[in-house]
Amino acid sequence: MKVALKRWMLLLLGAGAVLLVPWMVVLALTLPGSTEVRHWSLAWIGLDALLAAGCATTALLGLRGDPRARLTASATAAVAVLDAWFDITTASAGAQLAEAVACAVAEGVLAGACVLLALSKGRGHPESS
């Protein structure tokens, strides 16, 4: 990628980050405190299916020594953090929240492992990392 194009892309990402701040304020002021959701189970199943696909793809690529496993590990870490976030923020108080926190801890461990894999320098099989 050319340096100039990369710089412009990075500047656009930075601008997007700045523009998201007022948008978050608008959402905080205008979104309802609760809502009824259709296809609730499908949304959760889809998120877990994405997490499973990320884990499987990272494992397969990593065991083959394919450096692209670092990319899938990064994406899988992000999905695990999102899953934990939504587990906790959508749980009711009490037992449901305790279960969500327990799941979030497991997802946090998974995300941490994926981050370590994503940051690993080894390009060969797991034994060489």
Rank of each mutant, 00 (worst) to 15 (best):
G16E: 00
A17H: 09
A17D: 05
V18G: 10
V18Y: 05
L19F: 10
L20N: 14
L20P: 01
V21H: 12
V21F: 12
V21G: 14
P22T: 10
W23P: 09
V25G: 15
V25K: 14
V25T: 03
V25R: 06
V26G: 10
V26F: 13
L27V: 05
L27H: 01
A28D: 13
A28V: 11
L29D: 11
L29K: 12
L29A: 13
L31R: 15
L31G: 12
P32M: 15
P32I: 06
P32S: 15
G33D: 08
S34Q: 11
T35C: 13
T35K: 02
V37T: 06
R38L: 12
R38E: 10
R38M: 05
H39Y: 13
H39S: 14
W40S: 03
W40Q: 05
W40H: 09
S41T: 02
L42I: 01
A43Y: 13
A43V: 01
A43D: 08
W44H: 02
W44T: 02
I45Q: 15
D48M: 08
A49R: 06
L50T: 04
L50S: 15
L51T: 09
L51I: 00
L51Q: 08
A53L: 08
G54F: 01
G54Q: 09
G54V: 09
C55A: 14
A56I: 11
A56H: 11
T57Q: 13
A59N: 15
L60R: 11
L60H: 06
L61R: 10
L61D: 03
G62D: 03
L63T: 02
L63P: 07
R64M: 07
R64C: 11
G65I: 01
D66Q: 07
D66W: 00
D66K: 07
P67T: 07
R68H: 03
A69H: 08
A69E: 01
R70V: 08
L71T: 04
L71D: 07
T72V: 00
T72K: 07
T72P: 01
S74L: 09
T76N: 06
T76A: 01
T76M: 06
T76V: 00
A77L: 02
A78Y: 13
A78D: 15
A78G: 14
V79R: 05
V79H: 11
A80D: 12
A80V: 03
V81K: 03
V81Y: 10
D83W: 00
A84Y: 03
W85R: 08
W85L: 08
F86R: 09
F86D: 00
D87V: 00
D87E: 01
D87G: 02
D87W: 08
I88L: 05
I88V: 06
T89E: 12
T89Q: 00
T89A: 05
T90P: 06
T90R: 04
T90I: 01
T90G: 04
